[in-house]
């Protein structure tokens, strides 16, 4: 464990090159596998969000049964939003998605609405398509009319003070409801890269696409450097 094991013997040139070749071969294979994994991951298509209202899915903020209108002011609805995901769940696990009617209004005018095609999106969210797609970011309210009937639903979000909380038929609820805004269809990460690059460019000490480019460079440079060091091998320490 103390002295280098190869100190005593003298290896032939081909023996001496063997570890070097093995290391290079293994590294090439491993990096190819990692590259394939990254390509497969980035090719995965899924629904993308245009924004959220920043309300976490922390817990139930109210229960409703029957026809009610739930409204929430001070929402920012991003441009290009084609569907909305609302923090809502049914007490019965087998309950079908309720035929709610959603209205997005800004400046007292209805800008988008949706009442067909609602579906459960995970255990605590209901997705509802909206039409038309807003062409610019809107500031306004999101209202949801629930259907008549006995089925009970819970609104999911976080506790909030009256005035900022959601309302049910004009009465304040104990919290604010989680809302996500969705882009149309599904998109792979590849097609989503420009949006992702723009988002990574926000919220930093400087902004713009250079942040995402720098990040990509910083993610790849250590890998290249480590690969170089590994291939360079143990013989040059």
């Amino acid at each position: 464990m103390d002295a280098p094991e190869d100190a005593g013997g003298r290896a032939s040139p081909s023996d001496a090159r063997r570890p070097h070749r093995l290391r290079r071969l293994t590294l090439t294979l491993a990096l190819a596998l990692i590259g394939a994994g990254v390509v497969a991951t980035l090719s995965h298509a899924q629904v993308r969000r245009t924004g959220t209202n920043g309300v976490p899915l922390n817990g139930f903020v109210g229960t409703i049964a029957g026809a009610h209108t739930i409204c929430q002011d001070r929402e920012r609805i991003p441009a290009g939003t084609s569907a909305i995901r609302i923090g809502l769940t049914a007490f019965s696990q087998s309950a079908p998605p309720p035929p709610v009617h959603v209205v997005v209004a800004s400046g007292g005018v209805t800008r988008a609405s949706g009442s067909t095609g609602a579906r459960w999106a995970g255990p605590f969210q209901l997705a509802v398509p909206l039409r038309p797609r807003p062409l610019r970011e809107l500031e306004g309210s999101v209202c949801m009319r629930t259907p008549a009937g006995r089925q009970q639903y819970a609104l999911v979000g976080v506790g909030a003070v009256p005035g900022f909380s959601a309302t049910a038929d004009g009465q304040s609820l104990p919290g604010r409801v989680h809302v996500e805004y969705l882009a149309p269809g599904t998109r792979t990460w590849w097609s989503y890269l420009p949006t992702l690059g723009a988002r990574i460019g926000h919220g930093h000490a400087w902004s713009g696409p250079s942040v995402a480019l720098l990040l990509a460079l910083l993610m790849l440079t250590p890998i290249a450097l480590a690969a170089w060091q590994l291939v360079r091998g143990a013989e040059r320490r």
Partner: peptide, 25 residues
């Protein structure tokens, strides 16, 4: 930076839109 909104809330992202960026700045 919407710190309190996104802390512990995996479903919420950070500054995404130009409007949010302008407000942050």
């Amino acid at each position: 930076l919407k710190f309190r909104e996104i802390q512990f809330a995996a479903e919420d992202g950070t500054i995404w839109s130009a409007a949010e960026q302008a407000r942050m700045t």
